[in-house]
Design a protein around this nucleic acid. Structure first.
Lengths: 254, 254
DNA sequence: AAGTGGTCTAGACCACTAG
DNA sequence: TAGTGGTCTAGACCACTTC
């Protein structure tokens, strides 16, 4: 007569807890620097054992939405801290969203130069569906030139739904500290944890060829990226062209 | 005076168990069809609680070296079964090692035609270090043309250390059922679970241009892949050229 | 019915960080 | 010293598969 064995609908408890935490993270609680409640407190709040909370947090850690630090707490990872090479131990988390490396293998972080910034451009029909916005919705468009070791290697075109980045202007964009994704996180609460990319080899458009000192029509790598924040919310579309004469796009699968 | 609290050197028990299991898998025990001992039996064998075994197995499942099937057991995944679209549920495991898709998005598996097979070629110095073999070590070289919907899209050149594939000849290679990686797994015990890829845009070599019906020098995507089996052992290097006029290389990160 | 993996509990003890 | 996450235990019960 186990009348107290709970209802037990379909989804396991740890999944409900994971989704609840994910929603809280997507909703902007617990910004990058502040710790989550301790596992014991979360267990009390959800009325379950600590092990169940740990199972939920494990998932979010695997999805790169959280990091644990023994003795300190559990945090939303700081994207800029990740992008910077770590002192202690190998920099496995570095370069997570930057995959262009020199042929030899030495990993250098790029220097970014803002070429152009437009605060309100109607969204083309080719981009709107990827970001889940209406066609002709107002967008912010920026173009960057990235140099590695002084040499221009990547030309970026960024498309941001204006509604997700209220008040973002050229000064804030150019004057940021750290990476673009760090700005999305600290300025607007969008923690990018996943990207979908599509790559093609194309003949260099004239502007790209000029930037890289290439003959017109020379082969360049075209990368179309969609950046997704914690709840799989798309926040940026980026079209990049890379000069792969002396650099390569690296990809490790699974 | 806790004289029985165990030695507790550095590595946690679950890691030792994980490594032990990984070594057994790399050593060829438990081939694709046969289940591992049950978690209870493994716990007894290692003299620990079931939860500790589960922690170790969890890691190998995350690394795609094992799959659990409730009610049946824990298995080495069958690569060909993964590569085939699944009936039940979304085919999230399909296309794991094949990233070229039609522009629209419809995923078609390619048909492969063997163009060339050479049973013993000395390994070039440019390839040897990637596979951990000595320069001029004997290699098997194969070239494939892959068609998607009848259209030639990818030209592959495969380099295999002969020592890892004893007895592999053209007939066995061409007459296989399933994918190349399925052959590696079922014929030689090398379960590929990870790949490292480097991509560039290059001018099409003449032979590639001819195969794709491209003008000489047209841009094509060059993919250099190293395939790694369970213990991070490199087993294949592959240089592919892809026609990305109507197809794209897809990549989802983390 | 028996055997498998999946969920959840309750608690002990360890390792690390901070005040 | 107190609080955090990390490891490990021992066991209950559930869901699925096979006989």
């Amino acid at each position: 007569m186990s009348y107290m064995t709970a209802v037990n609908a379909e989804p396991p408890l740890w999944r409900l807890i994971r989704d609840s935490l994910e929603a809280a993270l997507a909703g902007g609680e617990y910004p990058a620097g502040t710790p989550l409640p301790s596992e014991a407190k979360l267990a009390a709040r959800f009325g379950c054992a600590i092990g169940t909370v740990r199972r939920a947090v494990d998932e979010l850690v695997a999805a790169r939405a959280l990091v644990r630090r023994q003795g300190k707490g559990t945090f939303v990872p700081d994207i800029d801290a990740m992008a910077r090479p770590l002192r202690d131990g190998p920099d496995r988390t570095a370069f997570y969203f930057f995959h262009i490396r020199a042929e030899g293998g030495a990993r250098l972080l790029p220097e970014t130069e803002l070429l152009d910034f437009r605060a309100s451009v109607p969204c083309p029909a080719s981009i709107a569906p990827h970001l889940g916005v209406a066609p002709r919705a107002p967008m912010i468009v920026a173009r960057n030139l990235q140099r590695i070791g002084g040499r221009p290697v990547v030309l970026d075109e960024l498309w941001l739904p204006k509604v997700l980045f209220p008040g973002l202007d050229r000064a804030a964009f150019a004057g940021r500290e750290g990476t673009v994704y760090g700005l999305y996180q600290k300025g607007f609460g969008h923690s990018v944890i996943r990207t979908d990319e599509r790559l093609r080899a194309v003949a260099a458009p004239t502007e790209v060829a000029a930037a890289f000192g290439l003959a017109p029509g020379a082969p360049v790598l075209r990368i179309q990226r969609i950046a997704l924040a914690i709840g799989d919310r798309p926040v940026e579309m980026r079209i990049s062209h890379a000069d792969t004469r002396e650099h390569e796009y690296f990809n490790t699968l699974a």
